[in-house]
Design a protein around this nucleic acid. Structure first.
Length: 264
DNA sequence: TATGATGATTTACG
DNA sequence: CGTAAATCATCATA
């Protein structure tokens, strides 16, 4: 019996494909959502946020996803507990019954054991069914989430502005450190993974043909130069006698233009 | 609707 | 691991 393997293309940080049905417990209990930006947020908070429908994006958001997952998990646990309890109750009930009967009819311990075994097996099969349907629900939810995520949305103008600014002002070494990535992610309100993706794409596409990006490069070089100039001006105002370290924004084609176009 | 831009994913490499 | 490169899928625009 092969369990049907859904081939969901595009799970960026998903756990390895493991169609073992038995691992469902792990999935429900631990479920490293493993999405980008695993910003520490309590499930309760996420649920509350999702419940109030605060998510700005129209697609299924992380918080939404997590909230629904939590809900499923909760239901699963409640049901499981209910079955557990029912099983115990039923078992004791049967035991009592048998004990009562043992007064009139001799009942071997073997018989009792067998009965208990049957009951437990019955209940565990029911629990398996519960597990399976829960698994199904999670799968559906997950695939929906992935579908939503696959819908590409361009970054905001401001975000690309910030990213480009960093890229062109570090053109000689456009490899932001982890901290820099986090900073950029924060500023652009995107995830660190997205920042990494962006720089990966930008590097390769810039290198592919520099000509196409010259205009953009000059534009951002000018912009950062202006910023630097302003900063320098402020610095000069603050301390009149400073060491004349050249604030050259190193790198290759990083001509320092003044705001009016003249070379500094 | 054809086409380029762009974000995301996959594959391969050190 | 992070990255380069190729590729995919969607967006944006003419």
């Amino acid at each position: 019996m092969k369990s049907t393997r859904l081939s969901i293309r595009g799970a960026q940080e998903e756990d390895p494909p493991d169609p073992q049905l038995m691992r469902l417990d792990n999935m429900l209990l631990a479920e490293g959502v493993a999405g980008p930006e695993k910003g520490g947020g309590s499930a309760a908070a996420a649920a509350a946020a999702a419940a109030s429908g605060g998510a700005a994006d129209n697609s299924i958001e992380h918080s939404d996803y997590r909230a629904k997952l939590t809900q499923i998990r909760q239901i699963y646990h409640t049901e499981l507990e209910k079955y557990e309890q029912a099983c115990n109750e039923f078992t004791t009930h049967v035991m009592n019954l048998l004990r009562e009967q043992s007064r009139t009819r001799p009942i071997s311990p073997k018989e009792i054991e067998r009965m208990v075994g049957i009951i437990h097996r019955k209940f565990s099969s029911i629990q398996m069914q519960l597990k399976q349907s829960t698994c199904e629900a999670v799968m559906i939810l997950r695939s929906r989430f992935l579908d939503a995520r696959r819908k590409r949305r361009n970054f905001s103008k401001q975000a690309t502005e910030i990213l480009n600014e960093y890229f062109y002002s570090h053109l000689s070494n456009p490899y932001p450190s982890e901290e820099a990535k986090e900073e950029l992610a924060k500023k652009c309100s995107i995830t660190v993974s997205q920042v990494s993706n962006w720089f990966g794409n930008k590097r390769i596409r810039y290198k592919k043909n520099i000509g196409k990006f010259q205009e953009e490069a000059n534009l951002y070089a000018a912009k950062t130069a202006v910023n630097a100039a302003h900063a320098a001006a402020a610095a000069v105002q603050n301390s009149q006698a400073n060491s004349p370290t050249t604030p050259n924004s190193g790198g290759y084609p990083a001509p320092c233009y003044q705001s009016d176009g003249r070379i500094q």
